[in-house]
Amino acid sequence: MSDAHASHDGGNHGSVKSYVIGLIFSLVLTIIPFWMVMSGGFSNMAVVVTISIMAILQVLVQLIMFMHLDFKTEDGWNAGSFIFTALILAILVGGSLWIMQNLHANMMLGG
């Protein structure tokens, strides 16, 4: 019996080894910012930058190791859907931050 699991369409899913490696990467990418916050020995900017970088890397690990996203299969549908999702997420997060910044600036004028 093989470690690889076949999907309904004949594709190949990850092996136990790839899942374990993904789990280890995920744990490390979670422990590093947690340690930085709990130790308290770093500037706020360093902590925010580290958390942001680790979050981006965490998303990539999840997509590649657990969801098996690659840019080679299915005639680019995986890549296209990933790029579309990233674009929508950037618009959503960027727009929310823009709105919150404008609200903060306008609320500070009155008081």
Rank of each mutant, 00 (worst) to 15 (best):
V49Y: 01
N102C: 02
V49P: 00
V20W: 13
S2W: 08
T85N: 07
G76I: 07
D9Q: 12
G11N: 15
H8Y: 12
N78Y: 06
A55T: 08
L29Q: 04
I83Y: 09
Q101G: 01
S43M: 01
M108A: 09
M1I: 11
F82C: 07
S81P: 00
S2C: 08
L92S: 10
M107Y: 10
G10S: 09
I99K: 13
I51A: 05
M67S: 00
I83E: 03
D3S: 15
G40N: 03
D9W: 12
D75I: 01
F84P: 01
S81L: 14
G76R: 07
L89G: 12
N44S: 08
D70V: 06
E74V: 07
V48L: 06
A6Y: 09
M107F: 08
Y19T: 11
F82V: 10
N102V: 04
P33C: 08
S2A: 10
L27N: 02
L29R: 01
A105H: 07
L69T: 11
L60Q: 04
V49S: 00
M45N: 05
W35Y: 09
H68F: 03
S39E: 10
T85W: 04
A55N: 05
S7G: 13
G10A: 11
S52E: 00
A4Q: 14
G80K: 11
M65Q: 02
E74N: 13
P33W: 06
G11F: 15
V20G: 10
Q101W: 08
N102Q: 10
V28A: 12
D9N: 15
S52Y: 01
M65T: 04
G76N: 06
L23P: 05
M108I: 01
D3Q: 15
W77K: 13
A90T: 13
S43C: 00
S39V: 01
L27V: 14
G22W: 08
W35V: 07
A79E: 08
L103A: 13
M65V: 00
